[in-house]
Design a protein around this nucleic acid. Structure first.
Lengths: 223, 223, 223, 223
DNA sequence: CTTTAAGCGAGACGGTACGTCCGGTCTTATT
DNA sequence: AATAAGACCGGACGTACCGTCTCGCTTAAAG
């Protein structure tokens, strides 16, 4: 599924008031400073003062355009929406999920990544939380073809819910690495992908179908 | 899996210097104030000043015994470790997992629970993060029998990793409700439990076994 | 002696740049806004931003023409120089002074008048201080006939200094109402006028004459 | 009448919370810094930041104890109330008034004195204005004997109002030097004192007595 | 039952960051 | 090419909390 940190193009101002020269340059400097500070010291050191200082810009300028740190993070997240991202297509559901999981794993595993810091920050700032939700919704929507192709190949029942499959596959990674804070297990991406694929095959991830008779139906779906 | 908020016994100080009288009373007042403030206003308003004021205790007293807010949270979490908790035993893996998931769901679903706030806080304070990890490790250890019984009943291969099953079952709940922040779906606990049970049945959650040939092996494991 | 607030014609710019059209209209709007803001909130709220906003003019326009708040006040004071003012002529020195004092009293007595605010402001802005001095010099010059007529009538020695008489008469009002901030006493204008008239009659306000033999002359006056 | 700047002992805290050690030392440093800054740069440069910096004390300490610049000035004024001050006693009303006036003149005449700055500041800060009024009330009360002795000596009518005499004597100095901003005239203290003494002798400064028949009575008094 | 020292209340302090206001300059877009 | 809109820099404001310190005083535990 990737992470919000994979792009850094900062394409265009949200409100195109002044496209040229200083205004755009200032925005770029500030967002760059936000990113740098985040990876260096984490969320705690991300103060408006520090951002302004790093960006070589006055405090009031930051307040004028972003209101607070949450606004900065939201803008960074939105600007980091990498429009060119597309899901893998290996020809098998499980391998596709493994590839997606590996992307997530890489973004979370080694120490305090920009990704982990952004997620952490989303717990403190509503703006950032909303921006992060937007990012994930986008990634889920783009990744749906992975599941739809699997259904087309007969790897899963027709009613399989793409989003449920994706969440089932990736959730253990976030849970282990962010919440439980266990040491990164290189086998984790594949195991979680396999489990999600198996559950999908078993018809346990169909959309809104409360599964008539769980035990037998599952056995049938498998067989 | 429950939540860290289910107990409030506050058993004893870690260092038993003065067990009786004022010292213990002060500790109880302070931890109670921490809990109240957390559920009222969330993690942001949990300042030492506010805690001291609410507890009717002087600021310096809090600093003297807990050092900072993280210490308060860690103490609260440790004191909230409900020693009497035990996992469900319905006779079927899936139903056991559903019961566990329902407990998690209830603790996370309705608004800013004490549980969600504690998890949020764990991102800001290392002490709290460690205490929370301890709590979850304890719950996973206690819940292992659920999987072991399932193995004994033949519902899953012998090599099935209890922890992996539990994480696979509960992770989607935390992911949806805490990270993705989607509206609570009452069907979610059962769906995630079914998916985890199906994956376990399919042998996708065996410990440290990299699963030689995914497709055929799974089919064999099912049959 | 009146006050600088008695006129509101805003006749012409000090430097007659553009008498007609937009330029003059803008000047009128801005000076009017200055006056309004002064009487509403006093000197503290008289910011360039507020003036520009009230006048419906851009900030930079104000900076361009008046440089700062002091310039605005100076312009307002100069424009408020009421050319038609003339001193009373009742036929007696004391009654003339009473009339002058009454004018001052009315301008200072009831709450924060425009006059009091302008004087207050003159302590913060040199431009305004100079403009206020010009205003007072003008008033003293115009009021000199009051004393000269009294000398002609024989109410005071020939060497009597008109300015000293006027200052002696009005100073207690400013002192009481602005500096000592005592409650306005309706008897004050007359009492101060009587005192000044008495001093003039006694020859205590002669110009640059160090009073030849103070003791005997005074003793005579007493006896 | 002197000035509020004539004492610098800073005798005791208004609220004697902590008399010894650091608290008292801090207060002294801060008030000293206020005085120094006032005489150096006037009222405009008297910011909390500057005071704290000069005093070698942190900003928040100043805010904690004095709230704002007005509070600082008020405390300085109160602490500068020189309890040992007493009016002159030369044996003659006029000479006493001359001495008083000379004190005022010296405090106001040469450039921006601490006195002039304090008065200026009182126009911006209510606290300082009140403290200044208290100071002047005190000085007027202490100076009353000057007039009472003159009455006892027969230099003025029994009903003479001491405060009116003092105000009449000193007001022209404040008016000329602070408001009209004329160049200091060394003859001014004596001339104003003579005028006030003459008015008192003439019975023009009696308390609350509306003066029965101004013209004739005055003529009698003169003649 | 006394001592004694751990713990507490109280107040002040240095310090960081906040978010706001205003003054004054400078840049951009318009007309 | 001039001007109006607006973004910027810089300084100060007043506040909230942090974490620390130094005093006395209480009081629980040990001798």
């Amino acid at each position: 599924m990737g992470s919000p940190s994979s792009a850094s193009d900062l394409p265009e101002p949200a409100v195109r008031r002044r496209t040229g020269g200083r205004a755009a340059r200032v925005r770029g400097q500030v967002l760059a400073a936000v990113g740098e500070l985040l990876v260096e010291d984490g969320c705690d050191s991300l103060t408006v003062d520090a951002v302004a200082g790093r960006a070589g810009v006055h405090r009031t300028t930051v307040y004028r355009r972003w209101r607070d740190v949450g606004g900065l993070l939201a803008d960074l997240l939105d600007s980091a929406a990498d429009d060119s991202w597309s899901p893998p297509d290996t020809g098998s559901l499980e391998e596709d999920l493994v590839a997606l999981n590996q992307e997530v794993f890489d973004a979370l595993a080694d120490g305090p990544t920009l990704t982990t810091v952004l997620i952490t920050a989303s717990f403190r700032f509503d703006d950032a939380a909303r921006a992060l939700s937007r990012f994930w919704d986008d990634r889920h929507a783009r990744s749906a073809p992975v599941v739809l192709r699997a259904v087309a190949r007969g790897e899963a029942p027709a009613a399989t819910d793409p989003r449920a499959v994706l969440v089932t596959a990736t959730a253990p990674l976030y849970h282990e690495l962010l919440l439980l804070r266990t040491a990164p297990d290189p086998a984790l991406p594949r195991r979680a992908a396999r489990a999600a694929a198996a559950a999908a095959r078993a018809g346990a991830l169909t959309a809104h179908a409360p599964a008539p008779a769980p035990t037998d139906a599952d056995a049938d779906a498998d067989g």
